[in-house]
């Protein structure tokens, strides 16, 4: 399952999943998932709903404890550490500094009642920033980067449109310059033109910042636009994996062929 890196660079992997599995009683949500993610690489996980994509994302981010296997992450000091062996304080620190998590529903990833500026600034304050002016400047420059009018910095996200909320959520996650971003259906529920702008924005940011990302999506167009590699899941297992173009243009598995051919031509 583990693909060798095609461009021959010898960067050490950022995230390593080995034989990951999660059971809910008799129900298997996820079974024997292994992959390696390198810095700057975007991996898309595709599959229909119920295929174990979101469970996988939660396993990767240590929000769920795996029933089998393990996830290791290369910390900023260069050590590859087993996530299960990290203390809770370390894990939570990682989560608000080195990682980002973009929820499908922005209301889950944002504080809807506090201003956009504070939403972006929260992570900075959590790592000890204590200068209002600097926090606000940083927040405002991030709002610009995600194309939100800075005049709305003091408005609560509940007054924002769906697309703006999602962009704000991305800004909030990227402000601490994480190295890994996990996204769960980031364009779900947005209309097509808004989706396109968001995808464009995400692609630029990922390139600019050299982010590694795992994007869970049921939308193959999202996978094609954003990701370098694709992992196709069905019934909790990975059935096909490879370079995005290769998998989407020349799918091997019957299920992947079905997925690819299910896109309605416009």
């Amino acid at each position: 399952m583990v693909e060798p890196r095609s461009d021959g660079l010898e960067d050490p992997p950022l995230l390593v999943a080995e034989g990951l599995g999660k059971d809910y009683g008799r129900l298997t949500a996820c079974k024997d998932v292994s992959f390696v993610l390198y810095p700057g690489e975007v991996l898309a996980v595709v599959g229909e709903s119920g295929s174990g994509k979101s469970t996988l994302l939660q396993l990767l981010s240590a929000q769920l404890t795996p029933s089998a296997g393990r996830v290791s992450y290369r910390m900023r000091d260069g050590m590859l550490r087993d996530l299960a062996a990290l203390g809770e304080a370390e894990r939570r620190f990682l989560f608000r500094t080195d990682w980002g998590y973009v929820h499908q529903d922005p209301a889950q990833g944002l504080r809807m009642a506090v201003s956009a500026g504070a939403n972006v600034g929260e992570r900075l304050m959590a790592v000890g920033w204590n200068h209002y002016g600097r926090i606000r400047d940083t927040a405002s420059s991030w709002l610009q980067r995600v194309e939100i009018d800075t005049a709305r910095i003091d408005d609560a996200p509940r007054t924002y449109s769906g697309g703006m909320r999602q962009r704000l959520q991305i800004a909030r996650n990227l402000v601490t310059e994480p190295r890994l971003v996990l996204m769960d259906e980031p364009t779900g529920g947005l209309d097509v033109s808004v989706q396109a702008r968001l995808l464009d924005l995400m692609r630029n940011l990922v390139n600019e910042l050299g982010l590694a990302a795992v994007v869970v999506t049921h939308d193959l167009a999202v996978a094609r636009l954003l990701s370098h590699r694709v992992m196709v899941m069905k019934d909790g297992r990975v059935i096909e994996t490879g370079l995005t173009d290769q998998v989407l243009d020349d799918p091997r598995e019957p299920y992947t062929q079905l997925l690819v051919s299910s896109i309605l031509p416009v």
């Binding site: 608000r96 504080r111 504070a118 926090i135 910095i153």
Partner: peptide, 17 residues
Amino acid sequence: LGEYGLMHVKLYEDIAR
């Protein structure tokens, strides 16, 4: 865990408003 960033969010909101 001594995670008190949120407390400053409240003060930030005050100043912003």
